[in-house]
Amino acid sequence: MIDVSVDFQIEWHKRVSSTNDVCQQYATKGAAEGIVVAADFQEQGRGQRGNAWESQEGQNLTFSVLLRPTFLLVTEQFYLSKAISLAVSDWLIAYVTNKPVKIKWPNDIYIGDSKICGILIENSFSSQYMESSVVGVGINLNQVSFPDDLPNPTSLLLETGTRVDPRKALAELVNCIDGRYIQLTEGYRDNIDNDFFNAIYRKSQLCKYYSNGEEFYATIIGVQPIGELVLRTAEGAIRTFAFKEVTFVI
């Protein structure tokens, strides 16, 4: 068991190129974990798969956190993704009571069938252990219109009818991250595994997927420790996919 207490320090910027970039600079300089970089607007915000992160200035919450989970092996890095996804879900559940809050593998956060949050984690390693992690989070808070090329976005305002101050939201979210990170550092991995699997979007439902030019129907039956998604096809075959190897058809 590792006793870790993170002293989170929040700094807020009007504009940055990317909160992950600023946080990564701190990591490179050897800063201690707990630095939180937030911004009203990111000029070059990015999400998973190399996509740009679209966000109206001042309407949403975009931030990055520097963590140093040096207790995790490289092969265990997906535990951090689980913990962060659950922390964001924990926070959203307190606001959204009429629809399910779910984690779309590997770490997008959905309300119903609409995406409200994206997470981008950039890790560095030292030998077989983690050295640092820059955890970028983008949550749609008060935005009500989105670019047409975004297929299924939503925001907290659209879902609840209530505006949330980004600074208030960040303070609450940092507490949620702290709680899940402590859970991880203290070795409660079974709890994280169970909570994560129970929160998976469309778990136990027969749904359409796309992989390598093929469309097929399958059910999520598990997530491996390294983060691979385990599906059972409609024909009964068990198939395992790494990130970017399979896509939900929503």
Results as ranks from 00 to 15, higher is better:
residue 207 C to K: 15
residue 213 G to C: 07
residue 173 L to F: 11
residue 152 N to E: 03
residue 238 I to P: 02
residue 180 R to H: 15
residue 218 A to C: 06
residue 203 K to Y: 05
residue 200 I to G: 04
residue 144 V to E: 13
residue 149 D to F: 14
residue 141 L to C: 05
residue 202 R to L: 13
residue 160 T to C: 09
residue 190 D to I: 15
residue 192 I to F: 03
residue 220 I to R: 00
residue 161 G to D: 13
residue 160 T to N: 08
residue 208 K to Y: 07
residue 186 E to W: 00
residue 148 D to Y: 00
residue 222 G to H: 06
residue 213 G to F: 05
residue 148 D to G: 09
residue 168 K to A: 13
residue 226 I to G: 06
residue 186 E to D: 12
residue 187 G to F: 03
residue 235 E to F: 02
residue 205 Q to T: 10
residue 236 G to P: 07
residue 202 R to C: 11
residue 234 A to G: 15
residue 213 G to W: 03
residue 184 L to P: 09
residue 216 F to D: 01
residue 230 V to M: 06
residue 166 P to E: 13
residue 200 I to R: 10
residue 186 E to V: 04
residue 156 L to T: 05
residue 205 Q to D: 14
residue 154 T to S: 01
residue 190 D to Y: 13
residue 220 I to F: 04
residue 146 F to V: 07
residue 199 A to N: 08
residue 185 T to P: 11
residue 191 N to V: 11
residue 231 L to W: 06
residue 207 C to H: 12
residue 190 D to C: 07
residue 182 I to H: 06
residue 183 Q to S: 13
residue 198 N to H: 10
residue 207 C to G: 02
residue 238 I to E: 09
residue 171 A to G: 11
residue 170 L to A: 11
residue 181 Y to W: 13
residue 226 I to A: 11
residue 224 Q to F: 05
residue 186 E to G: 08
residue 167 R to N: 10
residue 205 Q to V: 01
residue 195 D to A: 10
residue 186 E to H: 12
residue 157 L to E: 09
residue 191 N to Q: 14
residue 173 L to C: 02
residue 159 E to I: 08
residue 162 T to G: 00
residue 222 G to D: 12
residue 183 Q to L: 15
residue 210 Y to T: 00
residue 155 S to W: 00
residue 152 N to M: 02
residue 189 R to F: 12
residue 156 L to E: 10
residue 184 L to K: 08
residue 143 Q to A: 08
residue 184 L to D: 09
residue 221 I to L: 04
residue 164 V to I: 14
residue 182 I to S: 12
residue 175 N to M: 14
residue 204 S to A: 09
residue 178 D to Y: 06
residue 199 A to S: 14
residue 226 I to W: 09
residue 202 R to Y: 07
residue 185 T to L: 12
residue 212 N to M: 10
residue 137 V to N: 04
residue 141 L to K: 02
residue 182 I to D: 12
residue 237 A to M: 13
residue 218 A to S: 02
residue 173 L to K: 05
residue 161 G to V: 08
residue 150 L to G: 13
residue 160 T to P: 04
residue 185 T to D: 07
residue 215 E to G: 13
residue 228 E to I: 00
residue 173 L to S: 04
residue 213 G to D: 02
residue 195 D to G: 00
residue 147 P to A: 11
residue 229 L to E: 07
residue 201 Y to F: 15
residue 187 G to A: 03
residue 177 I to N: 06
residue 200 I to K: 02
residue 155 S to T: 05
residue 235 E to T: 11
residue 215 E to L: 15
residue 149 D to L: 03
